[in-house]
Design a protein around this nucleic acid. Structure first.
Lengths: 208, 208
DNA sequence: TATTTTTTTGATCGAATGGACAATTATTTA
DNA sequence: TAAATAATTGTCCATTCGATCAAAAAAATA
């Protein structure tokens, strides 16, 4: 029997849960919570539907767990912005990290976007919690840098929004991007995007 | 009987179809294609489910029609960018128009975002068609302006992507934006966003 | 007003889907 | 190896949902 309060899982439990999570991420990011079916997830990971429900109580529980484990990873690069470093370098590095995530973690980006887009029913508390904490902390840091005249004055909140939106755009709207760029080579697109974004934010942040 | 080739609709047909479209936009933008149900749409517009299916052959047909009528409106501001005007003014005006659309047409923005995000199954031809045409045209114009040294050199495609992503972010991710800004007044957020964006793009486009 | 056409709806169907469960099989433990 | 526990699966159920259809009601037309 599966214990809710358990701390130790068997080897098989660990393996299978991870297997399910990976498949679930793939299916959820493509079809959304409601479009995804247990059958599709089962098929993707090669298990049977009842077997999946042996490890997770419900479809919603799988979704919640996938989302939860994704969110921590999602916030991390923001936390890495350091007060000690050079302001412009730190911010540009953050832009780069976010762009790399869009490139290598497209599924996660899309899942997250879908969740927020549809009202964040399962993420609202996290948004208002740990994410907000981190954002507020970095906003303070940006304000400090501005007052020290180490970066140009901009609204720090909207600066963060702009970084998120511009970088995530390449993951979330990849269909559109590729379509408009004549299905140009994937690597080239990201190279161009990187150059554009770095130029863009440099110009914006170094003017007095 | 409903005629496919008909050109003239009755008064009731026009009214009811519009009624259904409005309700459908509301429901689809909130729940997505698969999350939306005919029952919800019916409830929203005060019709019965079979009555809706008297005007539209299927749920997909409603969705397609809503999306189609949305897309034209969506492209229009881009078309308005004029070769005659001052380059920076034209682009900044476009930014402003897109931001206003995010503010007043949030549902449309979210529906469009969801569609692209999930592979644009019904929009792909439009993306590759009329949207691409318009984008390519404006890219040429931007390139011309750059070669004339009337705006700073940037990749025009990515410039357009950045305008889209940053402005639409305020509609699509409104939950997150509001949550992180302490549920600040809606109008204030957009006023700040406008100021940020105009500053941002000015700085970016006026450096040599 | 009588007739025809359009619109509306209640009842219902079939497919899809999340989930339950008992029986079976595999694995671990004693 | 025997007993106990964990894992797996075939089968089935209840619900939801898109769609159908015939009959009734309303509107348009003659």
């Amino acid at each position: 029997m599966k214990e809710i309060t358990q701390t130790k899982q068997t080897r098989i439990q660990r393996e299978k849960r991870l297997l399910i999570q990976r498949a679930a991420l793939e299916v959820f990011s493509e079809f959304g919570l409601r479009g995804a079916t247990l059958d599709k997830i089962a098929q993707t990971c090669g298990l049977t539907k009842p077997n999946i429900l042996y490890y997770y109580a419900s479809k919603d529980e799988i979704y919640t767990e996938v989302l939860k484990s994704l969110l921590e990873e999602w916030i991390r690069p923001l936390k890495d912005i350091s007060e000690q470093g050079d302001p412009l370098t730190e911010i540009l590095q953050y832009v780069q990290k976010k762009l790399i995530m869009s490139k290598t973690r497209k599924q996660e980006s899309k899942l997250f976007a879908t969740e927020i887009l549809h009202g964040a029913p399962l993420t609202q508390n996290i948004l208002a919690g740990s994410l907000k904490e981190t954002v507020d902390e970095k906003v303070k840091l940006f304000d400090k840098w501005i007052s020290e005249e180490r970066i140009a004055p901009v609204d720090p909140y909207h600066l963060i929004f702009s970084i998120w939106s511009m970088t995530q755009h390449y993951a979330d709207f990849d269909i559109q991007v590729h379509s408009l760029l004549n299905h140009k080579n994937h690597a080239t697109i990201f190279k161009d995007a990187e150059h554009f974004l770095l130029t863009f934010f440099s110009r914006c942040l170094t003017r007095d």
